[in-house]
Amino acid sequence: MIELGLPPFLLLSAFLFACGVSCLAVKRNAIGVLMGVELILNAANLNFVAFARYNPAFRVEGQVFALLVVVLAAAEAAVALAIILNFYNNHATVDVDRADDLRG
């Protein structure tokens, strides 16, 4: 493990992040967008844990924040799904391009 080092994890995390962002960009299904967000959160989390491993000063902090992120992601998913369901109930679709009632 010692020779592995930090950069490979950062690269993997960057890849997950890029995937998440493109997911946000190309999905029209609201649930797909939500999945993109989950990917982005996981990318950040991976960074936290990697830093916890490779930086002696963050041994506790990195994990603590990772745990907080996991919990917040769960909450976020619950709320997002509730919003999506509500949207679906009212508009009979989950197409985010149709969600423009508040357009300026």
Binding site: V21, L24, A25, V33, V96, D97, A99, D100, D101, L102, R103, G104
Partner: peptide
């Protein structure tokens, strides 16, 4: 003027975010 920025188009938002 600024309310025109709020297009409601998610992809535009993601572009700005990126």
């Amino acid at each position: 003027e600024l309310r025109l920025v709020q297009t409601g188009r998610l992809r535009g938002y993601v572009l700005v975010l990126a």
